[in-house]
Every structure is written in C-alpha cells, then in structure tokens.
C-alpha cells in the first residue's frame, strides 16, 4: 500500500480544488488508512470545500453533518417517524391485529428516518462524511462520536445492531472556538490549513473563474493578501475573494485602480462586519490599490 498523494492532488485539481502538499498527503493518508482527518484553520480557508472536492475526486457521495450546540444522538443517528407510526397504529387497530404484530410492523426499517451518521455507514460505496464545525457541539457529543468512529456500528434497540456496509472517509473540521478533547485528536489524523499564499490563491481564482483576465486576477489576489494584513475582526477567506472577483467582473471593472466608487461599493463582498467596513474607508482602499497597481 503506497500513499500516492500526487495523484490525489491532481484529482482534486481537476475538480477545481487546489491543495498543497501537506493537505494532499493528509487526505491520501485518511483515504489509505481509513482514519478520520481533523482539519483546523481560520474560517474561510476552504475546510468544508476540501470534503466536497474529495467526494468529487473519489466520485462518491458527500454526507454532511453540521454540528451545533445541543446536537444529540437522535439528530445524528436515527429517529422514528412518529406521525407515520401513530397513523399505522390506528389503521392496524381497525384490522384487529395483535399488539405484537403492530409493534413488529411500526419498528421496521420503513419507519426509520436515517440521520447523517447512520446514513453514512449504510452506504454500499464508501461516502465522504463531513462533520462540520465539531467544536460547536458539546463535549458529550464528542465522546459519542468517538465511539461511532471507532466501531462503525449503531445499535437500535428495536432493530438490533447495524454494522457498517462500508467505512466512510471522515473529515472533521474545527474553527477552534473550543478546545477539542485529546482523545479525539489522537484518534484523528491532523492538518492545519492556513490562508493561501499569493501564488496558490491566484491558482484557485483562475481555476474557479477561468474567464478572468490575468491582470485583474493578479490585482485582486494581491489586494486581498494586503487586506488580510490589516487589523480586521474577520479576515476575508477564499470564498470572499471568489465572490469579490465575480462582483468585480459583474460590475465590469477591468482594473482596481479605475473606478474607486465601484471598488468601495464592492468591498461588502470582502468585509463582513460593520467595524471592518469602517476600518477600510476610501483612503485605506486607495492606499492598498496604490500598492497593487
């Protein structure tokens, strides 16, 4: 078994995702060793997009579990379809069936609502399971998740234990709003994603917006790179760069040093809080444009 990360890197590139060597190796190991991969990094560096690109590159399904505070096992594994169960009880009563028979019927797979984790382990072809923003879920959920990720089986009291049909490729992402447990970290492979450097960001921009003019693309990337060095509450991520580039193309801006008013108006694509918008007034924008032009 060799871990050909170059091939995976090319595969990801074909789907429009530019991964550097670190990330490509991490993904290759996660796929090869069937171990979950924990991705950390600032918001907007493309953590979620990794999973989507991986699913596309492996030509398989992406199943996503978005975490939030208060998430529990019911919402992630399975739930019974209560409305249908109640209806079924009524109809079967009229048919004079025994309680045992009804029970067997309404606790069958037909009435089971599969939630992401159960869905992911019951696929015949291994899907990519994206567990997004794990740091938002509570500690209890983390422990529960560890159990699922090591056994890949789910016990439903009414149906028995369901073994995984295939082991999914698991990608967890975290924004670092809470310290994750050491147990989870040890269980996972780890990779840290940073904001891309100029060359990489330019490559991403050209891969996603093939029609963009080279000159404008270079200016956009340099401007965003400079903007990230300013004191901002929320630094613009790659998605913001792409949005902004689309907006500039839509506004028919050919060069950043042309239309100052249009440039200033389009900054809402990059700066997402009121304080940040105020921190980059016209003069600051003009100074940055002066540096990139």
């Amino acid at each position: 078994m060799t871990f050909d990360y170059k091939a995976l890197q090319d595969g990801l590139r074909r789907t429009g995702y530019i991964a550097d060597d670190d990330l490509a190796m991490a993904l290759a190991l996660a796929v090869g060793l069937k171990r979950p991969l924990l991705l950390e990094g600032e918001a907007g560096v493309g953590k979620t997009a990794v999973a989507k690109a991986l699913a596309a590159a492996l030509a398989t399904r992406l199943i996503r579990l978005q975490c939030y505070e208060g998430l529990d096992a019911n919402a992630t594994l399975y739930e019974w379809n209560y409305q249908r169960q109640l209806l079924a009880i009524r109809t079967h009563e009229r048919e004079q069936r025994s309680a045992d028979e009804i029970e067997r019927h309404i606790f069958s797979a037909d009435y089971l609502l599969r939630r992401p984790l159960l869905e992911a382990i019951s696929q015949p072809v291994p899907p990519v399971l994206l567990i997004d923003e794990i740091d938002r879920a509570d500690e209890e959920f983390e422990a529960f998740l560890l159990e699922i990720l090591s056994d890949f089986q789910v016990t439903i009291p009414e149906l028995g234990t369901l073994q995984a049909q295939s082991i999914p490729y698991v990608v967890l992402t975290s924004n670092g709003t809470r310290e994750l447990s050491d147990a989870l970290r040890r269980r996972c492979l780890y990779s840290y994603l940073d904001f891309p450097d100029e060359a990489k960001e330019l490559a991403i921009l050209r891969a996603r917006l093939p029609g963009i003019e080279q000159h404008l693309a270079e200016q956009i990337v340099r401007f965003v790179q400079l903007l990230r060095r300013e004191e901002l509450e929320k630094k613009p991520g790659i998605a913001e760069t792409l949005d902004w580039a689309s907006a500039l193309i839509g506004l028919d801006v050919r060069a950043l040093d042309g239309d100052a008013a249009a440039l200033q108006a389009s900054l809402v694509c990059l700066l997402k809080t009121e304080a940040d918008l105020k921190a980059v007034p016209r003069e600051v924008a003009a100074r940055l444009v002066g540096k990139v032009a």
Binding site: F3, Y5, D21, M25, L29, L37, R186, L189, Y190, Y192
Partner: peptide, 20 residues
Amino acid sequence: VAAARLGLKTMLTGDRGQWQ
C-alpha cells in the same frame, strides 16, 4: 523524504502548535 515528512506530520501532530 518530503513524502515521509508530510505523512508523519499528519499522523503525529494533534493541534496547531505541534503542526507548526
């Protein structure tokens, strides 16, 4: 060596400080 370094880095680190 590059591949070995990348692979070990992924397998043996657990947080951002160790990664760096």
